[in-house]
């Protein structure tokens, strides 16, 4: 039975990956057409530096999406990470690494909370993580008093901001790009190298069947939320590094990260997707933002175009899947 179910699913995922990849290269080609110097390695590296937080968020979000859920709290985790880092480090470079460790602990705790609420209290993830989004944002605001407070030292900022110059071949190498590659490799290994991905897909597809097949459904779910939160902490560290402290650092990122996965071909409510859906989807979405910036369209219409692309991308995937089956 698993044979007959698996084959079309793998097939569909492969098609989807191609779609995300093709979309990214298509969009980047248009960027280059408008602004040829984006072909220079230096500018591509800068593109990666800015896209890194969204790509990492999406790569964490995909874990939850595969299990059939959503994580709406990732934007709040980003905001919380940035504000907490500034308050706890308060400009002292010696505190940076211990605070970063603490931030990951907090992230894990938030993910654990989401996971437990979903797995044991049976609250649908969209509501559970919406609740977390509210209380966590409120907590970040209450803690900082409503406006950015404290200070981030150079060595923390460097993670998202520093770039090595005069690197052979690529010109500049941002530290964020390096972090991006390492984190994505880790998340890829976690999903596809350890068999977790198969379990997650099974849970997302049909939790009852997965349970009967001996898969620990609750544990699989909880793991997904923890990983998503940890990814969000990483994104928060990079974002805080890139542009500094603010209390709205993460607003809107939750929907962007979900949209990225979907554009990349992952299916909501589970059943299909790979880490590549998240990576190429997020890069596509970010390329779209950059393109709209470069075209100088009124800001407001950029929202509209984003919405249109979202519907078209998902509509196309739905249509192709239906035609094949």
């Amino acid at each position: 039975m698993s044979e007959t179910l698996n084959t079309p699913r793998v097939e569909a995922a492969r098609i989807a990956v191609n779609a995300g990849l093709v979309l990214f290269f298509g969009l980047y080609a248009v960027i280059v057409l408008i602004q040829p110097n984006y072909l220079e390695p230096g500018l591509f590296m800068n593109f990666l530096r800015r896209a890194a937080p969204l790509v990492i968020l999406a790569s964490g979000q995909i874990y939850v999406i595969l299990t059939g859920g959503f994580d709406l709290s990732v934007g709040a985790v980003v905001t919380f990470t940035v504000t907490a880092a500034a308050l706890l480090i308060n400009g002292d470079p010696g505190a940076t690494w211990s605070v970063i460790a603490l931030l990951y602990l907090m992230g894990a705790a938030i993910g654990l909370f989401n996971g437990l609420v979903v797995a044991y209290l049976k609250v649908p993830s969209i509501i559970a993580t919406l609740g977390t989004m509210l209380w966590l944002n409120g907590l970040a605001l209450a803690w900082s008093g409503g406006a950015a407070r404290g200070d981030l030292p150079e060595n923390f900022r460097d993670l998202g901001r520093f770039q090595w110059r005069d690197v052979p071949l690529i010109g500049t190498l941002p530290m964020a790009a390096l972090v991006l590659v390492v984190v994505c490799a880790l998340l890829w290994w976690g999903l596809h190298g350890m068999g977790y991905g198969k379990r997650a897909l099974a849970v997302g597809d049909n939790p009852r069947a997965a349970e009967l097949a001996g898969i620990p459904v609750a544990r699989t779910r909880i793991t997904a939320f923890v990983i998503s939160s940890l990814a969000a902490v990483t994104a928060g560290i990079l974002l805080g590094g890139f542009s500094g402290v603010s209390v709205n650092a993460g607003s809107g990122l939750e929907l962007q990260s979900i949209a990225a996965c979907v554009i990349g071909g992952a299916m909501l409510l589970g059943g299909r997707g790979t880490i590549w859906c998240a990576i190429w989807g997020a890069l596509s979405l970010f390329a779209l933002f950059t393109l709209l910036n470069l075209m100088g369209l009124p800001q407001a219409l950029r929202d509209s175009i984003q919405g249109l692309i979202l519907i078209l991308a998902v509509g196309l995937t739905a249509w192709r899947t239906r035609r094949r089956s």
Binding site: Q35, P53, L239, S243, N248
Partner: peptide, 24 residues
Amino acid sequence: VGSEFTGSDRAKTKSVVEDYLNRG
């Protein structure tokens, strides 16, 4: 040369300015 809306978002502000600079 441009009038851009940033929504008080630091990352967006920095990106918008970078995009202008990147365009030369």
